[in-house]
């Protein structure tokens, strides 16, 4: 109760101070007036996808106004929810079930029309499967060179991103009139979903038909935290030897820690784990509090996806494995003995 009261008091103070803060901002920077960002928000079955809220945070860093964009069956209901996202001035909603499956063939013309109308200088989406598939198509329609997997925003036209599997960090300046970015989910925390008061507006619906038909999906169901946003990740590699051993050792360890399960490419290729669990250059990027690598040697393609983790721990029987060069805590040992022991000791704590 206390904390809620405290929060609402804070909100009241903020609400009072907002107009003056805004006007001083406008006076101090003429640029801020011209900058406007469209943040593309993802939703699924009428619920906002928190993974896409990093786009709002990234938009906030640019300094201008930030509008959110939502399309799909219950877009207006989701837009009401999104209007409370801190940092959003307006939410544009297009209610049409044609957009439910995130097909780039009808999403790209949809965004094109709404970007033209809004005169946005920046368009930001999360570097998710949806953002990766959609934004380049949109960029081509706008004749713009998009910038992928942005880790940092240094100015309105200057962005930082990894190249060569994160072995080099590139700073680029865009000369395009509209900047299209996909942002790395582990580099921009999700915007807070409370405290904002954006207006909700209908967007333009060009009703372009998709040339692609969505047939079905098969998603891995799990009660565990989602890999990309989990606080803790335990990840298994080739050292686990088989799917049976992977399934025997990894889930109990993950449960003992409350962690998500990841895998190296070797483990995925050998069929130990589902492809959606792959961590690395061509899989998912994670940056949890704790990344525990089990039976993973630490190839550069794997390190690309996890080396921004706060604490890296590993269990490997090869003391010369490259993973030990990045691990904060390394245990040389047979994982078939050490993992069950670790699981038991963590459970009894």
């Amino acid at each position: 109760m206390l904390s809620i009261a405290g929060q609402s008091a804070l909100r009241a103070i903020r609400a009072q101070s907002t107009p003056s803060a805004l006007s001083s901002n406008f006076q101090s920077s003429s640029l801020a007036r011209l900058l406007s960002t469209l943040a593309i928000l993802e939703q699924r079955d009428g619920k906002l996808n928190s993974g896409s809220l990093g786009a709002v945070t990234a938009g906030g860093k640019l300094g201008g106004s930030v509008h959110g964009f939502i399309a799909g069956t219950s877009a207006k209901t989701v837009a009401q929810e999104a209007s409370k996202i801190k940092g959003l001035e307006k939410v544009i909603a297009v209610e049409n079930e044609a957009y439910d499956r995130g097909l780039p063939e009808n999403w790209a013309p949809l965004l094109l029309e709404n970007i033209k109308k809004g005169g946005y200088t920046h368009v930001i989406a999360a570097h998710s499967a949806f953002g990766k598939s959609l934004l380049p198509r949109l960029a081509a329609l706008l004749d713009v060179q998009q910038i992928s997997d942005v880790m940092n925003i240094e100015g309105e036209d200057t962005f930082v991103r990894p190249i060569y599997a994160g072995n080099a960090i590139l700073t680029v300046q865009s000369t395009d009139p509209t900047k299209l970015l996909t942002v790395r989910q582990t580099s921009f925390a999700p915007a807070e979903i409370e405290g904002g008061s954006a207006s909700v507006e209908d967007g333009i619906d060009p009703k372009t038909e998709s040339s692609t038909e969505w047939i079905s999906e098969n998603l891995t169901k799990s009660d565990r935290p989602e890999l990309a946003s989990a606080e803790k990740v335990v990840s298994g590699g080739r050292g686990l030897k088989s799917k049976e051993e992977f399934d025997r050792l990894m889930p109990p360890l993950a449960d003992a820690l409350g962690a998500a399960i990841g895998a190296s490419r070797a483990a995925v290729d050998s069929g130990f784990a589902d492809n959606s669990l792959q961590v690395g250059q061509t899989g998912k990027n994670v940056a949890p509090q704790l990344y525990l690598a089990v039976g993973i040697s630490g190839a550069i393609q794997h390190l690309a996806g996890m080396k921004d983790s706060k604490v890296i721990a590993c269990i490997n029987k090869d003391p010369d494995a490259p993973i030990f060069q990045v691990a904060d805590v390394g245990l040389v040992g047979d994982l078939f003995e050490r993992v069950p022991e670790l699981t038991e000791k963590l459970k009894s704590q």
Binding site: P162, L170, Q173, S174, K307, Q325, V329, G330, L331, K345
Partner: peptide
Amino acid sequence: SRLKTIKVEEPPVRQGGGKVEDVD
């Protein structure tokens, strides 16, 4: 080209924190 390379840098180097003896 639409993009200008400002710079390319090495990523921050992570220091391995050494090894421990056992599970405890």
